[in-house]
Structure formats: structure tokens, C-alpha cells
Design a protein around this nucleic acid. Structure first.
Lengths: 143, 143
DNA sequence: AATATAAATGCAATATAATTGCATTTATAT
DNA sequence: ATATAAATGCAATTATATTGCATTTATATT
């Protein structure tokens, strides 16, 4: 995914700081979502823990990133598709959480719709499939 | 939901202790999932924090409870339907997470199936809808 | 019913994660 | 060039989870 951090920050009226740029760069490196601890490990020397928290929060608020919780309650972040906004996260796609390598993929698969019971109004629907990802499936075959 | 703690414990070859019974009783009170902090608040006088963690973990392992993470990374617990086992959690239903009261409902709605991309093998699929639950929707209308 | 023993509990200590307050630094509008 | 409003980093705090170990408890056996 090719992103332009400077432009993203401008679009959302956020100050352009090197920490904010670095976070976006790091997350954009992979289409796979990256976890908070991984980010912290990668950026820990350059960016303070607290600052990282704050940057991730503001990015989520603005709809720049979206946050996916894995089964351990760890936050994972991925760049939102361009149609996201602060009001409405367009994260109605399927996440695939590999139980071997723990990576979270954003799958390009339509979310099947299901009707809610009477009285319940759904805003967003999130589907996460747990299983073995392509890479780990291949790794098993090799051994 | 009518459950028999003594029987459940026996079925899973778990020792019958008053703490374990209390946890099951408390969770069975409501069809809605209960969060770890809520449980802790309710049982904190009777059961030690650590013991509670351990009981919840063992119940999850055995397939007696299933754990649903809410968007804050907080664990919520609900009694598994009888078809659950240690090997295979039958949690292929839809959860509804109310963004107002934060409660998580286990909806009795079939999970729509979606096909995984080539190379990905899914074991379980979890769908969570976020929105306003029946109770909170009614509460709004009243005001 | 008494007792051996293996497991569960509770407490203290430790580890890990997240948040808050505040002084300093930095981006940007003028 | 500079004023100022915001972001950062650090220290301290608070919250959450885990580990080790002594004590208690459930249950199988006699």
C-alpha cells in the first residue's frame, strides 16, 4: 500500500511531526495489521511509549487507522481504506487472525449480511476468522 | 438459562469448590455475557482475584465458558451452549456488543458463511455487531 | 468415619500495560 | 523572527495480570 503520511496528516488537520510520520510509515509497510507491542518494539528507541499511545488513539479517532483486537485483547492496527472517516469506520470487512503466527490480515472479501433481532440496531459488523494463514500453511507442508 | 454447576463440574472432572460453583452461578444469571471487571466486583469479597482468573481460564479451556473480547480488550464470559467441548468451541454465532451499555449479547442468528481466500483455512468464525441493543433503544425513546 | 494426597485457594510479591500531569520542545501562523 | 498552541518525553501513578508458595480443601481409599 502506497501512502503519503504528509498528505494524510494535512487532510486531517494534524500537525506534521516526525513521530507521526514514522508511525504511519511503519504501519503502511505491511498490509497485515501490526500489534501495539510490535510497534513499540520497532519504534521504542525513536518514540516514547506514551506518545505512541497518543498517536495511535488520535489516528483511530480520525479514522486514519483502525484497531482490531485479537483474542488476547491486544490492539492491532492497520491503515483504513480511503473511505473511512472519523464518523464512520468502514471496517466492514473480514479479518483473518492466524492462530499460528498471530498476524491479522484484512481480507478482501465481502461481509455477508445478517439481520438483527427486533429492537437491535447494528452500526458496524465485524467478522474475524481464526485459523491458519497462507504462509503458515505452506510452512507446515515444507516440514 | 438453567444450569447445574455441580453437574457441569462433574462432567469435566473438575473439583467441586464453592468458588467454582459461585462463578458458574453468577455467569448463568444472565444470558448476556459478563465482563471480568464486573465479575470481580460481584465476587471480589468471596473469591480472590487470582482464583477468579484461574477459574475463568480453566472454564474456557474446558469449553464451559467462552470468552468474548470487547472493543476495549476486556474479556467477557458467557456459558457455552451444550455442544461446546474443550476441542471445539461452538461459538459460531453472532455477538452483539452494545456501544451504549457495553453489554454483549449472544444472538440466536445463524452465521452467514463466507469463503476464505486460497491458502487460508478457517477454524472458527466470529462475528460481532456493534450498535444499540433493545434495552438502550427503548431507553432513548422514553426520554 | 478417619486419613492420605493431590489439587485449589489466598496472599504477597512481581511483572506488564495504560494513563495522567507537567515541564520542555516543536510546528506553524503571523 | 517570533508568538502561541499543540505535541512530546519523562516521572509518577494507576490498573491489570502473573507467579511462587504456604495453607486449606475435596475426594479417593481404607
Amino acid at each position: 500500500m502506497k501512502i503519503d503520511p504528509t498528505n494524510i496528516l494535512k487532510e486531517h488537520a494534524l500537525k506534521h511531526t516526525k513521530q507521526r510520520v514514522r508511525v504511519l510509515e511503519e504501519i503502511a509497510l505491511d498490509t497485515v495489521a501490526i500489534s501495539q507491542p510490535e510497534l513499540e518494539k520497532k519504534l521504542g528507541k525513536e518514540i516514547d511509549r506514551v506518545t505512541l499511545y497518543r498517536i495511535l488513539n488520535i489516528y483511530e479517532d480520525k479514522g486514519i487507522l483502525h484497531r482490531i483486537m485479537d483474542m488476547n485483547g491486544t490492539a492491532n492496527y492497520a491503515i483504513c481504506s480511503s473511505s473511512c472517516s472519523a464518523e464512520h469506520h468502514h471496517d466492514e470487512h473480514i479479518h483473518f487472525n492466524c492462530t499460528t503466527c498471530n498476524k491479522i490480515y484484512c481480507l478482501d472479501v465481502a461481509v455477508p449480511h445478517s439481520t438483527m433481532p427486533k429492537g437491535f440496531t447494528a452500526k458496524t459488523v465485524n467478522t474475524t476468522a481464526y485459523g491458519i494463514c497462507e504462509k503458515c500453511n505452506l510452512a507446515v507442508k515444507k516440514n
